[in-house]
Design a protein around this nucleic acid. Structure first.
Lengths: 200, 200
DNA sequence: CACCATTGTCACCGATTGGTGATATCAATA
DNA sequence: TATTGATATCACCAATCGGTGACAATGGTG
């Protein structure tokens, strides 16, 4: 060993692993050190304590979100603003359904009061914006639609649905384990999008 | 004192107070006992420990949700299914915006793995159903709309928006503290509802 | 080779957690 | 009044938490 950069990386990886496995609640200096096979003293030396480690983990998560979102950029140009939002919604739904880290990250934004949590929320919001900017040509939402508010509601719905399906075995009344449930939710999600961003 | 029923009630009240003030994370035997001004031993005697107390708190929360929802039953008969959902959405938005207990309860459903959490989710779902049953006359949703899925998404959106606005000072990009933000969200929420449950 | 800063290890601290056993105190009954 | 059973209190336990100081091993530099 005796390789500080490598050790720092190991610690950060372990932190992410702990977050995925145990969530924000199970996160702590001892758990991370144990997972990384490293003395916790090094966490204090290299990251200045728990806060510093969280800060570093925060920027890592922000990058992660950016990458995951950008991975779903449509290849073919879209025709109107509504279709854009449809794609974003589907991409986000796919991420939160397939990536445990996404859910734990969202959960952290809801439960944590640390400062890095706020910057994480802001970074994720920026990632959405970057996605939009990267795709929309000159596409504009209909004038009579409050696009930011509508989109926020849609993103919120997707996030909450995924979070709720994590622990409970029923969402409002729909069975969580049934794949048909998620088909219905996806179709209904698109239906909501099309309802506001009227399609030709 | 020396009044078991009163002591039990005090403990349960304290438990709810702790939940409101500190959330699921700060919940514990010691905190509740301290808040109630009671030795924690009594929690073990009367509720059989932390699990039993949670169980009792769960049924209390379920009743609470039922009451809060039912308090918003419309007086005048509604004309169609869409208007019904509009009212439910507005009522729910009002609850989660004005009642801290609602948010902490929702948060618990997302974070807790205890068994009572699942029954709480189920109870809340039943409360929605009871609300609907109490209001809809012979009203039916449009045939081509998957009402349960749509409604689940709408409820999810409302829950998540309120939860996100609790800690972060910006929801996706909308400033949390600005009252105008919530006006926009409410209007856009109704817009989503009307988009699917097409109005005359 | 000797020095010294960096890297890693170990042992400990006070505080808090969920949980338990023994004991004091009271109210009603015999 | 003496006994008894329920109610309340206190002291303690092992485990874990975040955090710190002292010490051992290492590798490059003079």
């Amino acid at each position: 060993m005796r390789d500080r950069p490598a050790t720092e990386a190991r610690i950060l990886e372990a932190a992410q692993a702990i977050l995925i496995a145990a969530g924000p609640g199970g996160f702590g200096v001892n758990a991370v050190a144990r997972e990384a096979g490293v003395d916790k003293q090094l966490i204090y030396r290299y990251y200045g304590g728990l806060d510093g480690l969280l800060e570093a983990l925060g920027v890592r998560l922000a990058q992660w979100w950016q990458e995951k979102l950008m991975a779903g950029l449509p290849q073919t140009p879209v025709e109107n603003y509504g279709e854009l939002i449809e794609l974003l919604a589907l991409q986000l739904l796919h991420i939160v359904r397939s990536e445990p880290l996404a859910l734990q990250s969202l959960l952290w934004e809801l439960t944590g009061s640390e400062s890095f949590v706020k910057s994480l929320s802001a970074s994720r919001a920026r990632a959405y914006g970057a996605w939009m900017a990267g795709v929309r040509g000159g596409l504009e939402p209909p004038e009579d639609v409050d696009a930011p508010a509508i989109n926020a509601l849609l993103i919120a719905a997707i996030s909450q649905i995924a979070l709720a399906g994590r622990q409970a075995d029923t969402i409002i009344g729909l069975p969580t384990n049934d794949p048909a449930t998620w088909d219905r939710l996806e179709k209904s999600l698109l239906r909501l999008v099309r309802g506001v961003y009227a399609r030709p």
